[in-house]
């Protein structure tokens, strides 16, 4: 019995030791690979979820890189941003998508449900800090443990075939959305109206991590802007606008907010009610680029300037 327990413990210890050696070595290499380095001329970063990923065509916005990623909660954006700031001293401004669905309670699932842990956390296991690990371990210990082990092979692959962030679509990047379903969605909504119930809950964790994103930028002296990219006027997710505004005022006061929700676009410029397609992205990105060139970031009342410019554009668009 004693021999059995002794051998079992020794085997367990050996397994854990070998596993730790592999994990630590692989993580050390990953952290020194410069995977998050971007070109020197890329000074503006766009981060966020699918709204931003499809709205900012970084080829049309000077000196910018779109690193937003569909289904990404602020929790993961925070890890990515930390690494980007660590690796790129020339970044001048960070734009983070802040839209109505970013604060919904379901964002907690985007952080720690099985699907998101395996799809998202897998990409960041080598870069995560203890605090973030604690969040995941507390809310989904099994998936966190499994994902750490499963990501080993993934990370070894990256070590053998290093990929820069610009070349790695898994971590983010502009998506050229061809879809144009707005008309059919609107018709379906007329036939079967969606009864939306105002959502009063929020994901405290996601909002906290947005706060951390703002803090880390401020500590490094890099301006951070919360941006709401264009949304279709009939987008049903605006029901929580009051909470959305309240959070902005009370919890996220450290960042400036720029609202492009009402940027004039036609139905055909949307892929659906919340995502612009490639046509909308082109118009909006060119507009955004013009504003940057005209000194948007130096304006004192940025929203006033934005509204004036959007009103000027409005005349040319018929919905």
């Amino acid at each position: 019995m004693k021999l059995f327990i002794r051998n079992l413990l020794f085997f367990t210890f050996a397994c854990v030791f070998c596993g730790l050696i592999i994990i630590l070595t692989e993580r050390l290499i990953m952290n020194h690979q410069g995977r998050f380095k971007v070109a020197k001329e890329q000074k503006y970063i766009f981060l966020g979820h699918s709204h931003a990923q499809m709205a900012y065509n970084d080829r049309l916005i000077d000196s910018s890189i779109n690193q937003a990623s569909s289904g990404e909660a602020y929790f993961y954006t925070y890890i990515k941003l930390n690494k980007m700031l660590e690796n790129n001293a020339d970044i001048k401004a960070v734009f983070v998508e802040y839209s109505n669905n970013n604060i919904l309670p379901e964002m907690n699932n985007w952080i720690w449900d099985d699907i998101h842990v395996f799809d998202r956390y897998k990409l960041y296991t080598a870069y995560i800090h203890l605090n973030e690990l604690k969040v995941l371990a507390a809310n989904n210990p099994k998936a966190t443990l499994l994902c750490n082990i499963k990501s080993i092979v993934n990370n070894i692959y990256y070590i053998l075939y290093p990929k820069n962030i610009r070349a790695d679509s898994m971590l983010g990047g502009y998506i050229y959305l061809i879809r144009d379903k707005t008309d059919s969605i609107l018709q379906a909504n007329v036939k079967n109206p969606v009864k939306s119930v105002p959502d009063t809950g929020i994901s405290v964790m996601n909002v906290n991590y947005l706060g951390k994103i703002i803090d880390v930028c401020r500590k490094k002296g890099i301006p951070v802007y919360l941006v709401r990219s264009p949304l279709h006027p009939k987008y049903p997710g605006l029901e929580n606008e009051m909470i959305f505004r309240k959070l902005l005022k009370e919890e996220l006061a450290g960042a400036e907010f720029m609202d492009f929700k009402d940027y004039p676009l036609m139905d055909s410029d949307y892929g659906d009610l919340e995502h612009v397609n490639y046509r909308g992205a082109r118009k909006y990105s060119l507009f955004f680029n013009r504003l940057l060139k005209e000194g948007l970031l130096d304006k004192k009342d940025k929203q006033k300037f934005i509204n004036e410019q959007m009103n000027a554009e409005q005349n040319g668009v018929k919905r």
Binding site: C15, G19, L145, I149, K150
Partner: peptide, 14 residues
């Protein structure tokens, strides 16, 4: 033998 067991454990997780 122990390497086989280790491999099996890793493959179960992975």
């Amino acid at each position: 033998r122990w390497s086989v067991y280790f491999g099996l454990i890793v493959s179960i997780f992975y």
